[in-house]
Amino acid sequence: MTRSVSASGPLEGRIALVTGGSRGIGAATATTLAGLGADVVLTYRSSLAEAEAVAATCEEKGVKATLLRADLDAADGAEELVTAVRERVDHLDIVVSNACASYPRVPLSDMDPTALGDKVRNDVVLLHRLTTAFVPAMRERGYGRLVVISSGSSWGPTAPGLAAHGVTKAALEGYVRYAADEFGAGGVTVNGLALGFVLTDASSVVPQPARDALANATPAGRLGTPQDIANAVSLLARPESEWINGATLPVTGGLNYPLNLFRVRGH
């Protein structure tokens, strides 16, 4: 791909990794960071055409976009991703840990313990490898941002079948606090974003009446969009965010507590 313009902005000269960058929140985040001047590395698992479209949009903003395939369900997926990133770029300034392993959408009473353990392990190991592989070098260069995409499901039940998801996100938020304590100095920050309901392909299975009720319960009066989340990531990625560290910020439109709509509505 050929750059059509020259990049400029507060992240000019920075390199950002966005996992799960081919669609939804990841795609919006990648294009937003590119608009701020950062070169981007995008991962995808199966949707190459979508990833290529995102990369093309990024490069139209005058930055370089690199695509990497990553299977985060694989036992060695995290290690393979770290190796692939190191082969393509010499360093990272920003890491957005957005992609996650698949998980069983079943009640706890029906959940296989191995499947639950695999979900927690895969996501925590991925975050740990990204952190230990790239964040120490950020401190040596004097600038780094690690942003972990979490969920309001970490606070408690929000819908049936999300137990594995919520338990894993709670573990990631705990990791953020420990990583910020160990690595969050010398121009480096480690933070998370706990998301409310965001309109993506994954959330499209939620019935419209439940979505309407959730929008009505949200002080902002609407549900979130991928761009809302990308905007929050960009705030944490900027140099001005250096004093925000070790926090998991709610990005929820004001609904900062778990609301199990299926229970409320009697479904």
Rank of each mutant, 00 (worst) to 15 (best):
M1W: 05
T2N: 04
V5L: 06
S8E: 11
G9P: 11
G13F: 10
L17M: 10
V18Q: 09
G20N: 07
G20Y: 02
S22L: 03
I25K: 05
A27K: 05
T29W: 04
T32R: 15
G35N: 07
L36V: 04
V41M: 03
S46Y: 06
S47R: 15
S47I: 03
L48D: 05
A49G: 08
A51N: 12
E52M: 11
E52I: 12
V54N: 02
T57H: 07
C58D: 07
C58W: 00
E59G: 05
G62F: 02
G62T: 11
K64Q: 14
A75I: 12
G77P: 10
V82G: 03
T83Y: 15
T83G: 14
A84Q: 11
V85M: 05
R88Y: 03
H91T: 02
V95F: 04
N98P: 00
C100G: 14
A101R: 02
S102V: 03
Y103C: 03
V106W: 09
P107E: 03
L108S: 02
M111H: 03
P113Y: 05
T114G: 08
A115Q: 09
L116V: 07
D118V: 13
R121N: 13
V124T: 14
L127W: 04
H128E: 06
H128D: 11
R129I: 00
T131R: 00
T131N: 05
A133Q: 06
F134K: 04
P136C: 02
A137I: 10
R139S: 12
Y143S: 06
Y143H: 07
R145E: 12
L146I: 07
V148L: 14
G152K: 11
S153C: 10
W155T: 13
L162I: 00
H165Y: 15
V167I: 15
T168C: 08
A171N: 07
E173I: 01
G174H: 01
Y175Q: 14
R177P: 13
A180F: 00
D181L: 11
G184M: 04
G192A: 09
L193R: 01
L193F: 04
F197N: 10
F197R: 07
L199T: 03
D201R: 10
S204P: 06
V206A: 04
Q208F: 00
Q208L: 11
A210L: 14
R211K: 15
A213V: 06
N216E: 14
P219D: 00
P219R: 02
P219V: 01
P219A: 01
A220W: 10
G221K: 05
R222Q: 07
Q227K: 08
I229N: 04
I229Y: 12
A230L: 04
N231P: 00
A232G: 09
A232F: 01
S234T: 12
S234N: 05
L236K: 02
A237T: 02
A237C: 09
R238L: 12
E240K: 04
E240S: 13
S241H: 05
N245E: 09
N245A: 08
A247L: 13
A247D: 14
T248Q: 12
L249V: 15
V251D: 12
T252A: 11
N256L: 09
F262V: 11
H267W: 14
